[in-house]
Every structure is written in C-alpha cells, then in structure tokens.
Design a protein around this nucleic acid. Structure first.
Lengths: 205, 205
DNA sequence: GTCTATAGAGGGATAGAC
DNA sequence: GTCTATCCCTCTATAGAC
C-alpha cells in the first residue's frame, strides 16, 4: 500500500518567494533587463540559492512565461468552448473576464506579446490557437450568425477592444490625458459597451 | 550675402549607416537586448567610432525612440486636425494611414509601447496627447456627432482596431493560424471595414 | 538548504595611435 | 574619421564550506 507524501509547507517558503519576486521583475522589466541578482536580493536570499532551486535564469523565465501566457490566453478557453452559452453571453463573459483580470494585471498583455514577438517559435506553440480556439464553439456560433463573418478577424477585433486600452495606459497617464482612476472608470464603462459594439459589428460583418 | 553650405554627401555615409542599423536592432530586440558591438559590426565599423558619432548607447537610443514615437503617433496629427475633412473621411484616412504604414513596419507598435511602458515619464511627454490630440478637430467632430460620446475611449477603440492586429501577428503566425500573406489579406480587408464598424459604434455610443 | 567567494564571459566606454 | 587595445564594471553561473 502506497502512502501519499504529506504536503510540505516548508517548500512554499523560499521557492515560492523567488517565483513571486521573479514574476514581478520579469513582468515589469522583461527578460533581458531583469537581473538574477535583483530577484535574489528582493527575495531575501542570494544568487547561489536561486540557482539551487531553478537551474538558470532562462529556466526560471520559462516557468513564469508559461504561467503568463496561460493567464492571458488559455484562461478563456472554457468560455469559448462552452456549449451552454449563447454567442451574446460569451461576448459578455469575455468582456468581464478580460476587464477584471487586466485591471489586476495591466502590464500582462504588453509583457506577453512583447516576449512572444522576440521569440515566436519558442513561446508561440503554447497557445493552442489553431487547434483550440479556431475549433471552439465560439467560432462556430460566429459563423452561424453570419456565414460571411471572418472569425479570426472578428476575434482580434474583440480582443483589441478589451486589451488594447491596457497597451495605451502608460501613454494616457504619462501624457496626463487620464489619471489612474480615470483609466479604471473608462475601462469599466467599456466593459458594458464592448459586447454591444461587437454584437453590432458581427451583425454588420 | 550668405552663401548656403552645400550638402555634404560624405556625412550621410557612416553616421546614417549607424542609425539605419540601430533602428533595426532596437526595433527588433528592444533597448537592453541590443548590443552596441552588434550595431557597430553590422554597420561595418567598430565600437570606438560609434561612440565618436553618438556619445553613448542611451543617446543613440533616444534619437531612434523619438523617431519611432513620431512615426506611430505624431504622424497622424495633420489628419486629426484637418478642418477640411469630415469625421467620416478622417476615419477612412486614419485606417489607410495606419494599415499601410504598419504593413511596412509591423513591429513598430509593440516596440514603442513596450519602451514607453518601461519608461513612461521619459518618453510619454513627447506624445502631445492632451494638448494636440484632445483639442483636435477630430475630437470636436466626435463630440458634435453625439454629445454622449466619450472621445478618448472612442479614439482608443479605433486605434485598437487598426493597431492591435499587429500585436497579435507573431501569435497568429507562430501558432499557424495565419501565414504571412493571410495576415496581410486580413489587414487589407479590415482597412475597408474598420471605418464602417467605427461609424456604427459612434452612432451607438 | 543556505551561505561566501570567485570564475568566466560580455558589455559599454575611452585612450591614444594613425 | 577610423582604428586597436584595453579598462572596468556587471552579470550569470558554479565551487565548495557550513
């Protein structure tokens, strides 16, 4: 009879602390500008210990990157694939999902898409776009609504409505066009409007 | 009588060659991942000479960055401020401007917005968003069309329609969802459709 | 597991000859 | 203007003691 190993709460301490710091550093500075020394010192340890847990900077980065790609893309697959919800309901769910999530992680899209662009063949494959997204219930319903619809283009349009404001956030704030709360307010209004806009565009095709 | 100095074609050679290479390197790799040694060797010279022309990497970068911000943002100000064109015409002109320009420089948006995010206070000011864009004829016409319109939000929506596909390009191609010519075709179709979509959204508000 | 110390490579910048 | 040689700092990674 096999006895399960009990959870070791000790392991959460240092290892998870490093991951936590690394997440923040990579997200804010990108891969090259992030220094292992900074991660170590911010985690309250030193370089050698960081390499004891994660063999290299690259390795640590791949772990974080994989997490973040999931956060940005893979997370919505259940919504897209749900056969119980209508197209209209999916539009609302997507808007809510992205708006709420990105208000918590405004820097996520620019980080992920920038690093993918610098290394497409390495990270691109993780996004099961062709297999998972293009064959989803969402795409099927889109084609059903109007056979002339170009599904990929429409998906990009909608993601743009939801995500692009977060690309512009630093610009808006640095130029003084929008303060922090002004930006949140705008995005929350858009959360309501985006599904309506998009429904209309789909109708138009 | 002042005699104008003749253009010195000699100066275009080395200095412009360095700029040309630096543009490509910074654009593809970002600031930190770009190495001055690479710029020099790709320009067919050496490090010392590069520092003779441009005092430092930072200095060279600021020049390129300034150029690129202009390319992405400042370039459309004449369109936005034209009192001779209708709102509808401006939508068409913006769509044409961005689509054609970004097909030539697909990596421009992600480079500029990523570097601005890493250093907002430094580069943000160059974009005269609050003073030039927000007081433009375009914004006035938008408010005229419907007083309930939220001009900033609508501008972001439209820029998203035109620019966001280029953020997704590496993802589309790495996942095999779209080949190179498939992407161009999609974007060219969108060039026609985006103004129509947007006109409709403005009507809805 | 956690540390100190250091190897080893790479990067930006400059001195100084031509 | 353009080069070679080199300084000097920073960064990643590892050896080895505790």
């Amino acid at each position: 009879m096999i006895i399960e190993e009990p959870r070791k709460p000790a392991r959460t301490t240092t290892e998870e602390k490093i991951l936590e710091v690394a997440r923040k550093q990579f997200l804010n500075k990108g891969y090259t500008a992030t220094k292992t020394r900074d991660i170590a010192s911010l985690a309250g340890i030193n370089l050698a210990l960081m390499n004891y847990y994660f063999r290299s900077k690259e390795n640590l980065f791949e772990i974080i990157m994989s997490e973040k790609i999931d956060e940005l893309f893979t997370g919505v697959l259940p919504v897209l694939n749900d056969t119980q919800t209508s197209l209209e309901e999916k539009l609302v769910l997507l808007s809510e999902h992205y708006t709420d999530m990105l208000l918590r992680s405004p820097g996520l899209p620019i980080f992920v898409l920038n690093e993918i662009q610098k290394n497409p063949e390495r990270f691109g494959r993780q996004i099961r776009f062709k297999t998972e997204v293009m064959r989803s219930e969402y795409i099927r319903q889109l084609a059903e609504a109007d056979p002339n619809n170009e599904p990929v283009s429409h998906l990009i349009t909608y993601l743009g409505m939801l995500i692009f404001p977060f690309f512009m956030k630093p610009v808006m704030q640095a130029t003084g066009a929008l303060r922090e709360d002004g930006f949140s307010a705008m995005v929350l209004t858009r959360k309501q409007l985006a599904p309506i806009w998009m429904k209309n565009i789909i109708g138009i095709s």
